[in-house]
């Protein structure tokens, strides 16, 4: 009970500060909309599909997963600012749950990611994308798990390195190959065999396949439950690891 109370205290505080600074909404939505408008039209011939709707069916889930990965991985910067301001140390002298210090923040990231995803989905609907509500909700669950995991990882790394200068290159180095090998922008079906073999080891490639299956309306595809399961396990591991770091010494 105390855990839930603590999580909601931290979450509410973080949400309040986020909403006070509406710039993120503009930035967070502007970029994906650019992708939808300027990049997606190139896809129709590239993917060899007949309609815009089909192109979006492949592209939109990839875009959403991309946002979940990157949005999460860069949350650590905010935490470093909080460390520097002494806010984290101030929390750590209270009896507040250390798991809540992490989860309150990660849930804020997840909620803002879902908000972003909803806006993008609505726009894509205007471009003839069609998706069943139930499938969409499952896809959002996938996104939430991804965002929970990547933001927890980012917070954990931030607590270890404690400086923006170290965090930025580190996160980029991790994110680039993950992105390229996940088939996010283009499906890996077009990749040569060896590349597909490598991509199979990238958990995000499973997540993307699962999300695409959901947008396709193929709820029964094994990609769906496999993707969800892999993301859930990784999210739990990441949260456990980062929460332990919150409990340990932080300066």
């Amino acid at each position: 009970m105390k855990l839930f109370r603590d999580i909601s205290l931290i979450f509410n505080r973080q949400m309040q500060l986020l909403l006070r600074n509406p710039v993120w909404i503009v930035v967070g939505v502007f970029q994906p909309v650019m992708y939808l408008l300027l990049f997606a039209p190139l896809l129709k011939p590239a993917l060899g599909v007949r309609t815009n709707a089909e192109a979006y069916e492949i592209f939109v889930p990839g875009l959403l997963v991309l946002l979940a990965i990157f949005g999460g991985l860069f949350q650590g910067f905010g935490l470093i600012a909080e460390l520097r301001a002494g806010v984290i140390e101030r929390s750590r002298v209270t009896p507040v749950s250390r798991v809540a210090l992490l989860l309150g923040r990660s849930l804020r990231d997840t909620v803002s990611l879902i908000a972003q995803a909803v806006i993008i989905t609505l726009l894509a609907l205007a471009f003839d994308l069609r998706v069943f509500l139930g499938n969409l909700l499952l896809a959002y669950l996938m996104l939430a798990l991804i965002s929970l995991m990547t933001s927890a990882v980012s917070y954990g790394v931030a607590l270890v390195v404690k400086s923006e200068d170290a965090l930025a290159p580190l996160m980029n180095t991790v994110a680039q190959p993950l992105l390229l090998l996940s088939g996010i922008l283009l499906p890996m079906t077009y990749a040569p065999g060896w590349l597909q073999g490598v991509a199979d080891w990238n958990p995000f490639s499973w997540a993307v396949n699962g999300t695409r299956a959901l947008f396709r309306g193929d709820l029964g595809a094994p990609d769906v439950w496999q993707g969800l399961l892999i993301m859930a396990v990784l999210a739990v591991l990441a949260v456990a690891w980062a929460a332990r770091l919150f409990a340990k010494s932080v300066r």
């Binding site: 500060l17 006070r20 002494g86 806010v87 140390e89 101030r90 002298v93």
Partner: peptide, 14 residues
């Protein structure tokens, strides 16, 4: 106990 750190502990935007 209460503890007040040397470097302060307030957040600019709160």
């Amino acid at each position: 106990i209460g503890y007040v750190a040397q470097g302060g502990s307030t957040w600019d935007d709160s």
